[in-house]
Structure formats: structure tokens, C-alpha cells
Design a protein around this nucleic acid. Structure first.
Lengths: 153, 153
DNA sequence: TTTTGGCTCATACTTTTGGGCGATTTTAAC
DNA sequence: GTTAAAATCGCCCAAAAGTATGAGCCAAAA
């Protein structure tokens, strides 16, 4: 099956060739071309097989592929995806991530505490743990690093 | 001239055909193929003209092309350009911008002072002015805002 | 030449942040 | 049901950050 499909053109060509030869033989037997000169007969064959050659070439040539590089400017701010792997690797919890995001948006610890309805101390603890995990010493560094690691947008 | 160039393939084909026919005639005259059967002769012609047909087709047909678009994601972080307009609008000085960049990279005020070979107080002053101009209250906000305004990468 | 603006620095003070504990409660996993 | 991790909160202290104000220096602009 696969073989037949792959060599379809070749097989068709072979069949065509056989048919042509058969046709010529038949014509010869019928004495139709006896009166014609040999040149006409040769020209006929030449014509037929030229056509077959053209057809074969068109069928068998592989199309040429041209690679066009198209620049895509994705809206990074919209199709941001959290780097879950890095998040898991750093062992950052859900709550810590929340705090991190609020911190990155420029809120003070007190504002973060108000937003999350927790005490200031809790926020401090979360941030302290974040600093540990991110291996940084300041909140600006934390924001820098976590953005680089695609933990936050 | 132009005509010759345009129909080069066609002319070559004509010449080739003439040459082949001439060759066959010569062979015929030389009685070389007299002893061969007609089928062999026909097969010879068929072979030659099939090749010619293939050659002709390859020469005359435009190459089949498949356009494949490849998406390229340019590194936006590298071709960053400072938004000079915004910078001018906010009236941020060169030195202030330096401080802003170092601040954004996560350095402490003391580290910034060491980097720029100025006193800590000077850095504080610059930062205070930056906060005014950017209309923010904290360094994280300053970084946030200035990145959004494309003042820093 | 005067003035303006940028850069520098200082002092004093307040607020925020961060470090280092310890502790209880919730939640999730085993 | 025990256990571990997460989340919560507190206190204290030191460091850093931020506020306010004043002032000297210098180069470029008016």
C-alpha cells in the first residue's frame, strides 16, 4: 500500500509507456503508418515522450520551501504566565506570592497589611521569608529578581 | 537580443531536437542501426526525448515555493529605548536618572552613594526629588512608575 | 552680570524596613 | 490522628529609608 502510494507517479509512467508502445504496435499492425515516413513516426514518439517527460518532471519535483521569518511582538504584559517551576523550586507559598505582588506594585508594608487584612507583623514575616527564598536583602531587589524569574509580571 | 534571451530554453530545445534527429539520420546512414529492431530504435528516441522533456519542464516552470512563516520573538528587553519625551516632561536630570537606575537594580542608598562616589545624603536628596517628580512615595513605586513610563528598562 | 538650575552636602527628625527571636492557630498531607 | 507546613501575630532593636530645611559651588543661560 505504502509502496504503491509512494511510487504512484513512476507506476503511472510505466503504464503509460506500455500503453504507448502497445498503441504503436497496434498502429503498425493495422498498417496505418506504413505509408508514413520514418521521420514522422520518430517525431510522433518524440512528441509523446517529451510530453511524458514534462509531466513526470512536474509530478516528481518537490516544491521548494522558503522560510520567512515573521516578527511577532507579543503583549508581554497580557499573556504573562507564572513560572510555576521556579515558584516551586523557590518554595514560595501562595500568600507569600500575594505579598510579593503587592510589594512589587509599590505598596508599603502597612498598606499590604491593610489590603490583606492582616497585621503589619505578618506582612513583615512573609517578606522576610521571601527575602530568604529569593536570596535578596531589600524589597527592590526582591521585585527585580522575581520579575526576572517570571514569578510576577 | 531580448527575444533570444527570453526564448533561450526553447531555442536550445529546438537545437537539441535537430541535433538528435541529425544524429539518428547519421546513424541510419552509417547502417549501424539497421540491424537493430525497430523497437530498440523507438525506445532510444523515447528515452532521449523523455530526458529532454524533463529538462525542459525543469527549466521552464517556476520553482514551486511554499512559504513558511516562522514566528520570531525579538528580545524586547534588549532594544529598549529611553522615553526622552517623558524624561523631559518630568524634568528628571541626568544624575537623578543614574540614581534611579541604580535604585531600580536593587541597590541601597549607601551602595548607590558608593557607586557614584557621593555622600549618602546626596543620594537621599536625589531620591527625594525623584519621588516628587514621579509623584510617588516609595522607591518600589518609583521603580514601578519609571519602568511603566519607559524611563528605565 | 545676574540668575537659574543642577549637584553637592549637612543636620535633625520621623517612618519604614528588616532581623531575630518565639508563639499559636489553620490547613493540608500522610 | 498525627505531622508538617503555612499562616498568623507579637515584641524588640537596629538599620535603612524618607522628610524637611538650609547652604555652598559651579556652569550655563538670560
Amino acid at each position: 500500500m505504502n509502496f504503491l502510494h509512494k511510487n504512484k507517479s513512476l507506476i503511472l509512467y510505466g503504464i503509460s509507456l506500455a500503453l504507448i508502445l502497445f498503441l504503436m504496435k497496434w498502429l503498425e499492425l493495422r498498417l496505418i503508418i506504413i505509408n508514413h515516413s520514418f521521420e514522422v513516426y520518430a517525431g510522433f514518439i518524440a512528441l509523446i515522450f517529451t510530453g511524458l517527460g514534462i509531466w513526470l518532471a512536474l509530478k516528481l519535483t518537490k516544491p521548494k520551501t522558503i522560510l520567512v521569518e515573521k516578527e511577532v511582538y507579543p503583549d508581554l504584559s497580557k499573556n504573562f504566565v507564572v513560572n510555576e517551576d521556579e515558584l516551586a523550586k523557590l518554595n514560595i507559598s501562595k500568600r507569600e506570592l500575594e505579598v510579593l505582588e503587592l510589594m512589587a506594585s509599590g505598596l508599603s508594608n502597612q498598606e499590604i497589611a491593610n489590603t490583606l487584612f492582616v497585621s503589619l507583623n505578618t506582612v513583615k514575616t512573609h517578606i522576610a521569608k521571601l527575602f530568604e527564598k529569593l536570596e535578596v536583602k531589600r524589597r527592590t531587589q526582591a521585585v527585580e529578581t522575581s520579575k526576572r524569574l517570571k514569578i510576577i509580571p
